[in-house]
Amino acid sequence: MSVAPHDFGDFPRSAAAARFEAWRRAFYRFSGSRLSVIGLGICVFLVLVAIFGESFVPYPQHVTGGIAPRARFLPPSATHWFGTNELGQDVFTLVVAGSRVSLLCGFAVVFAAAVVGTVLGGIAGYYGGWTDDLIMRLTDLKLTIPGLILAMAIAAALGPGIVNMIIAVSLSWWPGFARLVRGEVLSKKEELFVLAARALGASHARLIWRHIVPNVLGAIVIKMSLDMGFAILTVAALGFIGIGVKPPTPEWGSLLAIARGYMPEFWWTAVFPGLAIFLAVFGFNLLGDGLRDVLDPKARR
């Protein structure tokens, strides 16, 4: 062959090296924005607290419902960083311990909603026709009812309990994912590289799993991260109105709900759980924005 080989300089030597290189570059782009790095930091911190925090809290007996009547409503101090509540429990201990339930519930909701929404939205977008109409009318139905009200109704119907609450919130959450995924699949399906694969004789399974899903995954991950904060907020709101997590299990929303009665003179009982919720919402949103910069080719540059 007379064509001279092109020179590209450095190159990865294997599939693994190529994947590593792609990740390294993605992280480089991600770290270009200070806010996304802060978001990632907050999220990593919260997850670490949720996993290990309970082992290091100063008053572990308060996590399981222990009370200290003589230490009621102590303001923040060196011994009680966030003060104590109406039962004399250490608010710092409760907020740290509550992170596990709040984050876990938030993640469970978003994950379940993403799985259901992706499958249904994917079917609607890929196959179209009457299945598309059916699934999309179902999501329209959801749009007519505010999410929180729907979640409350389902939670009330299913009865109290963490699992029921997660089911209730996910059921009101999946249509957002379904709409996103349907739209993405519809546009990716028309991409030239999908047509090229069809011309090669690729099966539906290959078109979906090799060509469409990997190109839609970015959008799903971004929405998951952006929704994480709101899901924690919704779980907290349900805890606030008394559906879902029951005392003594500490959870940010229910901590806030109880503290409401003692505002403003014992402000620390409400402010610190509130700040924790704020931090989580803020952190996951920053992370989502950063991921969008990396994963969404349309938003790039």
């Binding site: 062959m1 064509v3 001279a4 080989p5 092109h6 020179d7 590209f8 190159f11 990865p12 030597r13 294997s14 599939a15 090296a17 190529a18 792609a22």
Partner: peptide
């Protein structure tokens, strides 16, 4: 890749490169 004038080593790169 050799046939079309590229180097075989470049097989582990992504199209955008």
């Amino acid at each position: 890749l050799g046939t079309v004038g590229l180097k075989p080593e470049h097989m582990w790169r992504y199209p955008h490169e």
